[in-house]
């Protein structure tokens, strides 16, 4: 376990020593502030609108950070050849995968805490309420989703050597699931037969990332989601993360690293 934490530590260290991470951080902070400054009138509709945009911004930024960081990890190790002195030590390839995953996930978690803190301060200063539990649920769900995404990107980065292609494909997959994944079953009903079964099959077969976007709750202050649902969603995310990490390990386990 210490080996996995040591590997994760290197991932996090790299992130805060690279400038691009800060750029995104500062950009989101500035935009969030700007968006809130637009709102001179205490109009409820406008406040909702601003909150909606800010949440979307947080979502996109954290996805960018998670995907871009993760896609780079293993290819960079191979490019710089640091994977060789590393694997020459008593560490298994499974531990390398686990360490990379943990590092990226913790880094994403740190980013989320900062983002949601900004958001909570701004939203609450307008609305004069502090629905802390609700914010926690929203952030937690997003962190669960990022676990699935990071595991998926790690899997992709083993098969596609170029981090840019891994990132692009991951973005398309994640955005696709978020936008249409939840509607596939309804779309299926309006289709002729072979297509209907295929779409319905796909619906049951993909990780439903769209469940993790709690923006409506936050925007309309709808109160908390039941903890049972949160727990179920957490377990569902854990299962998908496990599946993707296992597939990543299977691909990496026998990979000839010199080609």
């Amino acid at each position: 376990m210490n080996k996995i934490f040591a590997l994760a530590g290197v991932v996090i260290k790299e992130l805060y020593r690279r400038k691009d991470f800060y750029v995104l951080f500062v950009l989101t902070a500035v935009l969030t502030f700007a968006a809130s400054a637009v709102n001179f009138f205490q109009d409820e509709k406008i406040i909702r609108y601003v909150k909606d945009i800010c949440l979307l911004l947080i979502w996109i930024s954290s996805l960018v950070i998670a995907i871009v960081t993760t896609a780079r990890q293993i290819p960079a190790e191979r490019e710089a050849r640091t994977i060789f002195p590393l694997l020459a030590k008593p560490v298994s390839r499974a531990q390398v995968i686990a360490g990379k995953f943990l590092g990226c996930w913790l880094a994403a978690g740190i980013a989320l805490v900062v983002f949601y803190f900004f958001f909570a301060v701004i939203a609450s200063s307008r609305e004069h309420t502090w629905p802390v539990v609700m914010y926690f649920q929203a952030a937690w769900m997003q962190w669960c989703l990022l676990a699935v995404v990071i595991a998926l990107v790690l899997l992709g980065s083993i098969y596609f050597a170029a981090p840019s292609s891994t990132s692009t494909i991951s973005f398309i997959v994640v955005a696709g699931i978020m936008l249409v994944g939840g509607h596939l079953n309804t779309i299926a009903l309006s289709q002729p037969e072979p297509m209907q079964s295929v779409l319905a099959g796909v619906y049951y077969f993909i990780p439903h990332l769209e469940w993790y976007y709690l923006s409506d709750f936050v925007v309309y202050n709808m109160g908390c989601v039941s903890w049972v649902k949160i727990l179920a969603a957490t377990l569902y995310a854990a299962a998908w993360t496990g599946i993707f990490l296992t597939l990543a390990w299977l691909g990496f386990r026998r990979k000839n690293l010199t080609t």
Partner: peptide, 22 residues
Amino acid sequence: PEQTYYYKFLTAEELLRFYAKI
């Protein structure tokens, strides 16, 4: 190994500490 570019963003001390932890 032959021609390796160690983690550029770490210092030598941090690099050795990382491997020691491994």
